[in-house]
């Protein structure tokens, strides 16, 4: 059984400016949500709140399994992940970057090798496994970030503009990976994008942030 996410009355203020205002939504398990809005409207902030990286000033973020709310502890954090817009590539090999989340979960070495190589094949970076991750192009780094998240088989994946500032070829590869995740239906996906066509292509449901409020698109 996977996770669903409930936001109830989320408020967030930065430097006296109210970014999020009474945001409430129930994200159903296994669906893909495309979240749109103008720059600075709080999409990334909302995603970071969902990822438990930030706490709202008011309101409640609840993850539920079998309708039961879960405590926001390490165990829960390890069931979800966020692809940051800047990825945050570690200064080591491509392989080690993807293996990171598995290593810190004390997964066995043989299992790590198997899972990392399988996911690197999916994102088309298997041939670069020994290369330094910091030498990857922006598009490849985004694919690496996606691989790093996917290898953990999270139940909730939060994607903050995964195709921003990258070329068409990398965009198509990333969209293909997201489609594959959708088809498997194992994870709830929340995708922030500026591209309405992409939102329509990938999202089961469209959401909009306007004047700090979360609205159906």
């Amino acid at each position: 059984m996977g996770l669903s996410l409930e936001l109830a009355g989320i408020y967030k203020t930065y430097n006296g400016h109210e970014i999020l205002r009474d945001c409430s939504w129930v994200f159903e398990e296994g669906l893909t949500y495309a979240l749109m809005g103008l720059n600075g409207t709080g999409k990334s902030t909302l995603l970071r709140i969902c990822a438990l990286l930030e706490t709202p000033d008011q309101g409640r973020v609840s993850y539920l399994a079998d309708q039961k709310p879960l405590a926001p502890d390490l165990e829960l954090r390890r069931r979800l992940t966020l692809l940051l817009p800047g990825v945050g590539v570690f200064n080591t090999s491509v392989f080690n970057n993807v293996a990171y989340g598995l290593k810190i979960r004390s997964v066995k070495r043989r299992e790590i090798e198997k899972r990392v190589m399988a996911i690197l094949d999916v994102v088309g970076l298997a041939h670069k496994r020994r290369e330094r991750a910091l030498d990857l192009s922006t598009g490849q780094a985004k694919r690496l970030g996606l691989a790093r998240a996917m290898v953990l088989e999270p139940e909730v994946i939060l994607l903050d503009e995964p195709t921003a500032s990258i070329d068409q070829e990398n965009t198509e590869i990333i969209e293909g990976i997201i489609r594959k995740m959708k088809a498997e239906g194992k994870a709830t996906i929340i995708l922030v994008t500026h591209d309405p066509a992409q939102a329509a292509r990938l999202g089961d449901k469209l959401l909009l942030i306007q004047d700090g409020r979360l609205l159906p698109g």
């Binding site: 990822a51 954090r77 992940t81 940051l84 800047g86 945050g88 990171y100 989340g101 790093r148 998240a149």
Partner: peptide, 22 residues
Amino acid sequence: VNPIIRQAARVLGANPLQEALT
């Protein structure tokens, strides 16, 4: 070290000690 590294470690499931070591 770029603050995004620490955030990346956290969203990949690192505990506070693992975050610091990263």
